[in-house]
Design a protein around this nucleic acid. Structure first.
Lengths: 270, 270
DNA sequence: TCGGTACGATCGAAATTTTCGATTATTATG
DNA sequence: CATAATAATCGAAAATTTCGATCGTACCGA
């Protein structure tokens, strides 16, 4: 009983197949068995079908180790300052996995995850809490007001919000949460200010600030290098802006092994 | 219920497939359904498998109308004088069917059918009765002794076996049943005779007989044309040789529609 | 925020099918 | 002619598929 079926089953199965195909597959002439014309024709298809089934199993099983496509939605700052190391490491451990990076803003997280346009979101901004969205990581990010080290305001020991009156600011796009937060702060105190430059690129803002064009408001993670190199300096303005970097998936999303492999290191490393 | 399954079945089937493949095929995000990476990968295979199943059904169903290969074993006389009309008619009605003709002798019928080397046998010779062989047709064939019309023996009103003493005969191969029968007849009466020509080809024998080389022994069906054209003439030798043309299949052989279509007209036409 | 609606998951029962072991039938072989 | 080998057949048991009902959840409009 090497193939795991009773003999009677084989008879029955063959007869069933013959009925279903409305033909005869085997001729039993004497003690020998011959394939009929129909049987001869069926054989290659049967083999093909078995092969196809095996292929499916192989592809889907191996696939957990090999190819897949993960779409990451991330905000610009994180793309520049956090993701490179993560992506590099993931690509090393999962060389056959396609990683697609989509630039999104904090406000789009829920919609993008709900529409399944992205598999995972990694953004910085206001806290997001949503019943349908799972947050794997929520890290408070320090928001700094910065200038070139030579800026006149650097001489002050401490700054109040009023000290920013009429200062020229280099800010990120309006939809950016920490700009929003900062502007609220100014406006709620009735402080006038100028927006000298508005750019979606953190890199541009930093360069211009270094050149002394004005002040900027950025999370520490985006400026750590420049602080270390004394290209930028923080201004001693105390704030408690609630800004977080967060990592999300849709709650109903199945975490494929590959996706889990992408997410886990982020959670652990931060 | 357009596809004929209860809704709960679909759920169960999907889950079963997911278990079997050890993956998740669908993400249900909110109310919408998305294929996962795995599902996306499976889809083309699923489609292929359905197509393959359809193909099989089509091929085997249509096949009863279209292609098949029938191997006919027949003796030379029948090949020349009976089969042409049959084959022509069959090819007209079944243009896609391959007909393969195998020259066999009466003695090989049982072995060839039992080994499934041929699908059907159509031979002339001694009666064949065998429990494993089905005979669809058994027709007594008149065996004639013939000569050219100008032969001296033609003047006789009736011939006895002794009149053949020392006559030159043009005979078919030794394995041919009606030659065998005739020789037995001669030998059992102790009649001496010569074999002037021995040929497997009926055509050769007839031509040589027409040329006056001697006498020949052939079934009427092989010489009817020459008799009508007065190229050959029968000698008035009464015999009751038991020679039959018979049509056989192996009793266990499945008669495919095509094979039946080949056999039926033969039975009816003769 | 609160029903209402739509859709899928879950569950137990019923129907179907698959499977098995035993028996019977057939064929080849000594 | 008896025996061995192989496959068909049959009824019962096991497994599965199917169904309908119910439950849970998400979306939608008030």
């Amino acid at each position: 009983m090497s193939i795991g079926y009773a003999q009677s089953n084989i008879s029955a199965q063959i007869q069933q197949l013959e009925q279903e195909l409305n033909t005869k597959l085997l001729d039993r002439i004497g003690k020998k068995v011959f394939l009929t014309e129909s049987g001869e024709q069926l054989l290659p298809y049967a083999i093909e079908m078995r092969a196809l089934a095996s292929t499916i199993r192989d592809k889907l099983d191996n696939d957990h180790l090999s190819h897949s496509r993960i779409v990451v939605g991330a905000s610009e700052s994180l793309c520049v300052f956090k993701l490179p190391a993560i992506v590099e490491s993931f690509r090393r451990s999962h060389p056959n996995n396609e990683l697609h990076l989509e630039l999104i803003e904090n406000a789009q997280v829920v919609e993008q995850l709900t529409s399944n346009a992205i598999d995972v979101a990694f953004t910085i901004g206001n806290s997001i809490e949503h019943p349908a969205i799972t947050s794997f990581l929520k890290k408070r990010e320090e928001v700094l007001v910065l200038s070139a080290p030579t800026h006149p305001l650097q001489s002050k020991k401490a700054l109040a919000i009023t000290d920013f009156a009429n200062q020229p600011f280099l800010l990120t796009s309006t939809s950016c949460n920490y700009r929003e937060t900062f502007e609220c702060d100014l406006k709620s105190h009735g402080i006038p200010y100028q927006v000298t430059l508005e750019s979606g690129s953190v890199q541009v803002i930093k360069k211009m600030t270094i050149s002394g064009l004005g002040l900027c408001v950025l999370p520490r993670l985006a400026v750590q290098d420049e602080l270390n190199a004394d290209l930028l300096a923080t201004l001693p303005y105390k704030n408690d802006y609630k800004v977080y970097s967060q990592l999300f998936c849709h709650a109903s999303k199945w975490l494929s092994p590959n996706l889990a492999d992408f997410i886990d290191p982020i959670i652990k490393s931060i």
